[in-house]
Design a binder for these strands. Sequence first.
DNA 1: TTGCCAACATACCAACCGGTTGGTATTTTT
DNA 2: AAAAATACCAACCGGTTGGTATGTTGGCAA
Lengths: 204, 204
Amino acid sequence: MPPRAVNARIRLLEAARDVIRAKGFAATTVDDLCRQAGVTKGAFFHHFKSKEELGVAAADFWSETTSALFAAAPYHQPDDPFDRLIAYLQFRKELLAGDLAEFTCLVGTMAQEVFDSAPAIREACHASISGHAMTLVPDIRAAMDARGVSGFTPESLALHTQAVLQGAFILAKAGNSVTLAQDSVDHLIRYVSMVFSQAGKEKK
Amino acid sequence: MPPRAVNARIRLLEAARDVIRAKGFAATTVDDLCRQAGVTKGAFFHHFKSKEELGVAAADFWSETTSALFAAAPYHQPDDPFDRLIAYLQFRKELLAGDLAEFTCLVGTMAQEVFDSAPAIREACHASISGHAMTLVPDIRAAMDARGVSGFTPESLALHTQAVLQGAFILAKAGNSVTLAQDSVDHLIRYVSMVFSQAGKEKK
DNA sequence: TTGCCAACATACCAACCGGTTGGTATTTTT
DNA sequence: AAAAATACCAACCGGTTGGTATGTTGGCAA
C-alpha cells in the first residue's frame, strides 16, 4: 500500500468523476483532469496507459463508490419489500438536490457519448448501471410474489427505474431545472405503487 | 432560392444529425461533418459561423423534421384521446428498430453533453424536447378530464414520457440492446394504462 | 456589359491534445 | 547497503482542430 501513489490515482478518478459529469468525456482533456487533481501528465500516464483506460477505471470507481453509498443508505430499514422499494425511490428523489453536475450519473453520461467509439468504457458503464439495478431485484421479486403481481420480470422493472432516472437527468440538464427530474420520479413512484396495487392509498 | 446553397447547408445538417448521434457532439469534428456532407470547410463556415452555431441549427433542424414525422404519423387516428395517447406510445416503441444511432434522439444526446458549456445548444435542445412533449398535452388533458384523473398535471406526464424514452435510449446504448429500451416503453404504456384506470383490461 | 453578392473552394495557421521521453525521488525487496 | 521497483515530474512532439484569409464561380439586376 504505497503512501502517495494511491493518492494521485484516486485524485485523478475523483477529478474524472467531477469534470466528466460537467463537461462530458470527449470534452474533458487529460490536462483538465491533471489540473483538477493537482498532478502532472506524467503521473496520469503512469497510472492509466490511455485516456480510454481512465474512462474504464472511472466507471469502475463509480460502481464502487455508489454501491457503498446505497448499501449504507437508510432505505433498507422497512420490513416489507415493497416499502423498501418505495423508500429506495424516495431516496433517489431526495438525492436530486444542489448542482446538476453533482447528482447526475457519470456512467449514464459516458455511455451516451462513447457507446459507439469506446466499447470498453461502454461495457463498464453497462456493468455499473445493471449491477446497481440488480440490487433491487430481490425486493421487487419478493413484492411481486407477496402481492401476486405478474406480467413483467423483476429485472425489467429494476432496469426501468434506472431508465426513468437517466431520462430525468437528461430533462433536467436540457431544461436546466431540477424540478423536471423530481416530477418524473414522482410518476415512477406512482407507477410502482399502482403496479403493486397500492393505488388506493392516495396521498392527501 | 439558390440552387446549390441550400443543398450544402441541409447536407451539413443531415450529416450533423447522423454523425453526432453516433459519436457525440464534442467528438464530432468539423472535418467529419464536411466529409460526410461532401463539402469543404469553407462551405461549413459560410453557413455557420462556428461549430456551436451548427449545434443550435442542428437542434432546430431536428425539431422541424421530427415534428413533421409525428404530424404525419398514424397514431392520431383513434377517436378517444386516451387511445391516441396509447397509440403514440406504441408508435414510439415501433420506432425502436434497427441501428442504435438511427433511432436515438439527437437533442437528448447533445443536451447531455453541452448543458454546462454551450447554453445556446442546451436551450435549443430543451425547446425541441418540450415542444414535442407539449403536442401530447391536449390529449392527456382530455383523457384526464373524461376519466376524472388527477394528482398531476398533463404537462408533467407528457414530459415523463419523454424522460422514459431518453432513459431507454441510454440503457440501450449502455447495454447495446434494443430490447432494454422496448421493455422500458412497455412499463410506460402499463403506467399510462393504469393511471387512466384501464388496469382492468389486462392483456391476455 | 458592368457591378455585385451569395455560395462556395483552397490554403493556411496557431492553439491544443493525447501521448512519450528521460530523468529523479522515494519505497520496497534482497 | 545495494538493487530493484514504484511513483512521479518537466519538457517535449507530431498530429489534429476550430477557425481564417484569400480567392473563384455563377447568377442576376441595372
